[in-house]
Computed example of a mutant assay.
Amino acid sequence: MPHPTTPPALIPAGRPALHYAQHAERCRAQLADFWGKPISGLPRGMDLLQAMHITATATDLVDTPESFGLYLTMCHNFGHAYRTSDVWVAPHSMAPQIARHPFVNQDSVIVGNLEDAAPARDGLACFPTPIHLDNNIHPIDGIAWHMEGSGDDLALAVETITTTRLLPTRLPPLLASSVHLPRTPYCPNGVTTLYEGILSGYSNPDWWGAPDTATALALVLAFWELRRPDDLNHHPEEDLLTVPQHTSGGTKNTGRDRKNKRSQRPTRKRRIRIIREPAHTTAHTTAHTTARNDRDRMAADDTSGPKWKDDTLRWEVTQKHQNRCPNPHQHRAIIEAGGECKPVSVPVKAHVNGPRGRDTDPRRAVRIVPDRPTRDRADDSQ
C-alpha cells in the first residue's frame, strides 16, 4: 500500500481510465462465466458454494438436496445478473472512505428502501485501490449486488470479491487442495443475502477472509451513499466509457458474403462508468460531516433535551410483527435484579413515525438489521 501521507493517484478521463474500464469489463465477464457457464452439467460456481457450505455447516452439500437446489438457483441468478450488470470503477480515494464510513463502523445497520437507494438493480463496483478493513479480512477488490423481486418480496444478494490467490492462504490444507477456484485474477469470497429483514451468510468468514454479513451489507450501502449522483444517464462527475464486451470464446463467423470472404459478427459494446476522483466523494463527505458536527455541537449546548433533526420527515410503517419486552415498565429493574425478560412477538399496527407537523417521505421504509458481531477493537487500532 502507498504511504498514508502520499496523495492517491487520480483517475483521469484519458488512457488510464480506458485501461480501468477494460479491466472492470473483463472482471464482469469472467464472473458471469464463473457463475453461469456449466462444466459437466453444473455451473462452475457450484464447487465454490459447496466448499463454502462445508466451512459453514461441516456437512456435504450433496447430503442436503434442498440446499443443493438453492445454490444451483443462486448460480443461475448470479450469472444472469452479471450479464446485465451496470459496472462502476471507483476512484482511488473511495476505498479508504468506505473503510471509515459510519455504516461500516457502527454496531448495527439500518436499511432504508433498497429499491430507491440502489443505483442499479444489478451492479458491480471495482476498486483499483482495494478496501482494507482489518488483518482478518482479505483486501476487497470489488463488491457486487443483485436484486430480485419488488416491494415486500425484494431480496438482495451481496458478493465481496478479492484476489483469487489469497483464498487458499486461510483455508484448511485439505479443503484448499480440493476446491476448484477459478483461473481468473478475482473470485468471490463471501455471499450475503437479505430477505424480509433477515441477513444470511453462506460460508465461514474467518476461513475465507470475508467480512461478516452485516459488514458486507454495510459496504454496499456505503458505496451507494458515497456514489453521487443518482442520475444513471449522465453527470459531469462520471465518465461514461464504451469498451468492447469481453468474451471468453471470441467472435463467431456468421457466414460468407458475396465475395466469398468470412464476415465476423460485430463486436458488442458495454458502457463502464468511471467515477471521477475530485469532489465526488470527498466534498460530499466533508460537507455531510461538517453539518453533522454542527448539529451535534448545537445539541450538546441545548440542555432542554433531545430534539428531532431539522431535516427529518415522517415515514410510514406497515403492519408487522416485532419482538418486544413483555414488561417494558419494569424491564430495567428486572435486568438489574438478575432476571430475564424473554421477548414476545406482538403485532404492530400500521403507523407513522417522525416529528409531528412535518411532511411524509413516501420513499422511506425502515428495516432494522440485527446487531453484527462485535469486532476486535485491538485490530481496528492497528
Results as ranks from 00 to 15, higher is better:
D86K: 14
N323E: 13
Q382T: 11
A218N: 02
H101F: 07
L48G: 07
I368A: 07
S248T: 14
P328W: 05
R276D: 11
S200Q: 15
D231C: 06
L226A: 06
G255N: 09
H235D: 15
V317L: 09
N77C: 10
T242E: 12
E196I: 02
P4E: 02
H288N: 11
F78S: 08
V369I: 15
E148L: 05
H19C: 08
L114W: 11
H92Y: 13
A90I: 04
R265D: 13
G197T: 05
N77M: 10
K252F: 15
E340A: 10
V348T: 08
T281C: 15
D361G: 04
N293M: 14
A120V: 02
A90D: 05
L171F: 06
I198P: 01
L232N: 13
A117N: 07
P326D: 01
A291E: 10
E25Y: 06
R314S: 05
E159T: 01
L124A: 05
S93L: 06
D230N: 14
S200N: 14
L48N: 02
Q322L: 14
W35L: 07
L240Y: 15
N323A: 12
I131A: 02
A90L: 07
D107C: 12
D376E: 06
T303Y: 07
R363Q: 10
S345R: 15
G354V: 01
R276T: 10
D134A: 01
A51L: 10
P43F: 03
I11E: 04
A120R: 03
T129M: 05
T129G: 00
P370V: 01
I137T: 15
F78T: 03
R377S: 12
